[in-house]
Computed example of a mutant assay.
Amino acid sequence: MSLAKPVMRGLLAKRLRFHLPVAFVVCLSLAAAVKFGVTEPRKRAYAEFYKNYDANKEFNSMREAGIFESVRPSGE
């Protein structure tokens, strides 16, 4: 009893016919998952944060806390 010889001719083309579309579908699904699972919620969170953000109020609170060396608090 002997083993059958493996078919080597056309093996790459045969394997690519299956693996290339599968890889394409997996890549597209992962890209969609990242877009809708990460970037869209992050964009909504940034939009919500900056909707009520007051830069001058934040600057004044940091100035009062003494974070800036070149800007003195208004009480001095």
Rank of each mutant, 00 (worst) to 15 (best):
M1P: 15
M1E: 13
M1C: 10
S2I: 02
L3I: 06
L3V: 08
A4E: 15
A4F: 14
K5I: 00
K5V: 00
K5P: 00
P6V: 07
P6M: 07
P6H: 08
V7M: 13
V7Q: 14
V7T: 12
M8S: 00
M8Y: 01
R9D: 13
R9Y: 14
G10V: 01
G10R: 00
L11T: 02
L12K: 14
L12Y: 15
A13H: 10
A13V: 07
R15C: 06
R15S: 04
L16C: 06
R17S: 06
R17D: 13
F18L: 06
H19N: 11
L20T: 06
L20R: 05
L20C: 04
P21D: 01
A23K: 09
A23Q: 09
A23M: 07
F24H: 10
V25G: 02
V26P: 03
C27D: 01
C27I: 05
L28K: 05
L28M: 07
L28P: 03
L28H: 08
L28V: 07
L28F: 11
S29H: 11
A31D: 01
A32H: 10
A32T: 03
A33R: 07
A33G: 07
V34M: 07
K35G: 00
K35P: 00
K35Q: 12
F36T: 04
F36R: 04
G37E: 05
G37M: 09
V38Q: 09
T39D: 10
T39H: 12
E40S: 02
E40D: 12
P41F: 11
P41L: 07
P41W: 14
P41Q: 08
P41N: 08
R42S: 07
R42V: 10
R42W: 15
R44W: 08
R44G: 03
A45R: 10
Y46R: 08
Y46S: 03
A47E: 15
A47P: 13
A47H: 13
F49K: 14
Y50A: 03
Y50M: 03
K51H: 15
N52T: 14
N52F: 14
Y53W: 15
Y53A: 02
D54V: 00
D54M: 02
D54I: 01
A55P: 04
A55H: 09
N56F: 12
N56M: 13
N56P: 02
N56R: 13
N56T: 11
K57S: 00
E58N: 08
F59R: 14
F59H: 14
F59C: 09
N60R: 13
S61A: 14
S61N: 13
E64K: 10
A65D: 08
G66F: 04
I67P: 00
I67D: 06
E69P: 08
E69R: 09
E69M: 04
V71D: 08
R72D: 10
P73E: 04
P73M: 03
S74M: 05
S74L: 10
G75Y: 15
G75H: 15
G75M: 08
E76K: 06
E76V: 10
E76M: 05
